[in-house]
Every structure is written in C-alpha cells, then in structure tokens.
C-alpha cells in the first residue's frame, strides 16, 4: 500500500514540474531578451537607437538607428492585414455560411494545407514568381526616374504580398469558427424579418462574431510581425524607408540577415531589435487580446 502511495506522489510531483516548465521558459526568455537587448540601448542611447534613421553598423563610424526598420515592420504588418483580412473574412463567410457542403470540402483542406506549407517555400516561390513580376512593375513605374535604386524585385511590396498570403489561414480558421458559433436563432430572426441572406450575414452574423474576428486579426498581426524567413528571401537587403519599391529590412529579416557576421556593438544592436520585436509581440498578444476579451464581456 505504501509503495502505491509513493508512486502517486511521485507522479504528481513530475506533472507539476512539467507544467511549470512553460512558466520557466517564458520568464527566462523575457529575462534573456531584456538582458541581451539593453546594453546597446544604453551604449547607443535610447532615442538615437530607436528613432535614428541611419543603420550603418559596419561603417568606420557606425550608426545604429532602427526607426526605418520599426516602421517597415509596422507598415508591412498593417498592409498585409489590409489585404489579408478582407479576403480571409470573406472566405470564412463562404466556409461557414454561403458555400455548399461539397465546395466547402475542397476549400477547407486547401486552407489547412496553406497553413502547413513551410515558410521557406513561400520565400522560394516569392523569389521565383513575385520578384520578376515586381521588377517589371518597378521598371514601368520608375522608368524615367534616374535616382531610384533598382531592387530587382526584392522590395517592400513583395514582402507585403507574401505576408498577406501567410496570415490567410490564421484569419480564415479563427473567423470561421467564430461565425459558426453565432446563435442560429438571431440569424433566423433576421431572415424572418425579410432581410436577404447577404444582409443577414453582414448586418447580423458578422457583428455578432465581431470579437472572434478581432481575435483572428490580432493573431494574424502576431504572425505577420514575427514571420522571418519567407520575407527575408523577398524583402531585399538594405535598410530603407518603407516605400513600395524600396528594398527594406523588417525587424525579423534584419536579425536573420546580419546575425551571422555581426560582432560587438552591431550584434548587441541586433539583440535590441529582438527585444523591440518581443515587446511588440507581447503587446499584441497579451494587451490586445485582453482588450478584445474585455470588450466582449461588456
């Protein structure tokens, strides 16, 4: 009997230990990111680093301003959402409300597969398909402007398109389940009052599913902010102000691109970029999700 009791106790202790690992992991990642990211902040200066527009880490007199990089990440994410969310929500409307069962059976697995495609494949396809297209577009737009630095198609616009595609599955999946969770009775009420199906969807169902769709947007935002490899392959390699045909660096792609050859203060500045990204992600995931939940409760 005593032995049995002991095994029960040991099992419980091990399970608690395993459960606590998640807390330990989050805490140590936070501590490490702060520890690694702050030296450059104090050495370069908070304002110069965060709001400086010159990023020349390997120059004789190096400057470490990441303002353009921050703007690129923010604008890039916003633009990707602007393209991805409407397409995603309408696809979700199709899956949950409009589509007949047979077509839904084709679209749903397609969305699942889209989510499973590794990001380097998106990057590779971006290089092969988007870049030549963008280069032609660039040639057309900047035909007469000699001071434009040609990027060969690796630019902000390419990165936005890749991001928009990559957030689609997230937006679609969560929106679909929130639309499906809307009570059928309010739908019936709307239809019974003479509203058409489309009116019902846009005036009754979507407003009722609002908080779920907002969650989808927030998660898509997190996904876009954190994506690294796919856009590292199509966004170009120079830090510039985020204009459509500029070669740009995102917070993530700057780390991917320069970590391997960086040293000293340059490396510490990259860790600061990591810290900025981490802060953005925590803000999006914890603060915005909270706000949505609070709004939902009211």
């Amino acid at each position: 009997m005593g032995k049995k009791y002991a095994s029960e106790k040991i099992a419980k202790a091990i399970f608690i230990l395993f459960a606590i690992i998640a807390i330990v992991a989050v805490c140590s990642i936070t501590v490490y990111m702060i520890k690694l990211g702050t030296p450059a902040l104090s050495q370069v200066g908070v304002v110069e680093l965060l709001f400086g527009t010159e990023w020349k880490p390997t120059a004789a007199e190096p400057t470490f301003g990441i303002f353009c990089v921050i703007l690129t990440s923010i604008f890039g994410t916003m633009m990707a959402l602007l393209i991805g969310v409407p397409i995603g929500v309408l696809t979700a409307v199709f899956l949950a409300e409009v589509g007949n069962k047979k077509i839904v059976m084709i679209v749903q697995p397609a969305v699942e597969l889209l989510a499973a495609v590794p990001s380097v494949i998106y990057g590779l396809l971006g290089i092969m398909l988007l870049k030549p297209f963008m280069y032609n577009l660039e040639l057309m737009v900047y035909n007469d402007i000699s001071e434009h630095q040609f990027t060969g198609g690796a630019n902000f616009l390419s990165a936005i398109l890749v991001l928009a595609i990559m957030i689609l599955p997230t937006v679609i999946n969560i929106s679909t389940s929130s639309i499906r969770a809307v009570q059928p009775s309010i739908k019936s009420a709307s239809l019974a009052l003479g509203a058409t199906k489309i009116q019902t969807i846009f005036k009754v169902v979507l407003p009722a599913a609002k908080s779920g769709i907002m969650t989808a947007v927030v998660l898509g935002m997190g996904r876009a902010l954190g994506e690294a490899m796919a856009i590292a392959m199509v966004a170009g390699g120079a830090v510039n102000f985020p204009l459509p045909f500029n070669s740009v660096r995102f917070l993530t792609t700057l780390i991917v691109g320069e970590m391997s050859y960086s040293s000293g203060l340059h490396r510490e500045a990259l860790f600061t970029i990591g810290l900025v990204l981490f802060a953005f992600i925590l803000f999006v995931n914890i603060f915005l999700t909270r706000m949505i939940r609070k709004g939902d409760a009211e």
Partner: peptide
Amino acid sequence: RIIELATETLSGIPSIIFGMFGMMF
C-alpha cells in the same frame, strides 16, 4: 491561470525570438 497564460504566451512568440534565445542560452 498562470501556467495557461504562460503556455498561451509561449505559443505566440515568433520562432526568430526562440532562435535568439536558444543561441544565447
């Protein structure tokens, strides 16, 4: 609640951050 919040936070951290943490830790 804390464990679930930690798990949720962990799932939202981008892989590049895991990469930096892993490299240094």
